[in-house]
Simulated scan of single mutants.
Amino acid sequence: MVTSCGLGLLYPQMPGHIIAVSIIATHMLFAVFISASPMGEATPARGLDWRHIPSLLRSTKVWLLLSTLFLNRVASAPFYGFYTIFVQENGLSGEVVAWTWGLAVTTEIIMMLVVDRFIDRIGTTRMLAFGVCLEAARWFVYAIVQSKTALLLLAPWHGLAFTALYVASVRELAELIPARLRSLGQGLGAAANGLGQVVGLVIAGYAHQIIGNRGMFLIGGCVGLLACANALLLSYLVHRRHDTGRGGSSTSAGYGSDW
Score class of each variant (00 low, 15 high):
Val2Trp: 07
Gly6Pro: 11
Leu7Ala: 10
Gly8Glu: 05
Leu10Trp: 05
Tyr11Pro: 07
Pro15Asp: 09
Gly16Val: 01
Ala25Lys: 09
Val32Thr: 11
Ser35Asn: 11
Glu41Ala: 08
Ala42Asn: 08
Leu48Pro: 05
His52Pro: 01
His52Asp: 12
Ile53Val: 14
Ile53Trp: 14
Leu65Asp: 15
Ser67His: 12
Ser67Met: 12
Ser67Trp: 09
Leu71Lys: 10
Leu71Arg: 08
Arg73Ser: 15
Arg73Thr: 02
Ser76Cys: 06
Pro78Ala: 02
Tyr80Ser: 11
Phe82Ile: 04
Tyr83Arg: 05
Val87His: 05
Glu89Gln: 08
Gly94Arg: 10
Gly102Ile: 04
Ala104Leu: 11
Ile110Gly: 05
Ile110Gln: 12
Ile119Pro: 00
Arg121Gln: 06
Met127Gly: 00
Phe130Leu: 15
Gly131Pro: 04
Glu135Ile: 07
Phe140Tyr: 04
Tyr142Asp: 08
Gln146Lys: 09
Thr149Trp: 08
Thr149Glu: 10
Ala164Trp: 06
Leu165Tyr: 09
Val170Thr: 09
Val170Gln: 13
Ala174Asn: 06
Leu176Asn: 11
Leu176Val: 04
Arg182Ile: 11
Leu184Ser: 01
Leu188Gly: 13
Gly189Met: 07
Ala191Gly: 15
Ala191Ser: 15
Val199His: 12
Leu201Met: 10
Ala204Lys: 03
Gly205Cys: 10
Ala207His: 06
Ile211Asn: 09
Arg214His: 06
Cys222Lys: 15
Val223Phe: 12
Val223Gly: 11
Ala229Pro: 07
Leu232Cys: 03
Leu232Gln: 01
Leu232Asp: 02
Arg240Trp: 03
His242Thr: 12
Asp243Val: 02
Gly245Ser: 00
Gly247Gln: 14
Ser250Gly: 12
Asp258Asn: 01
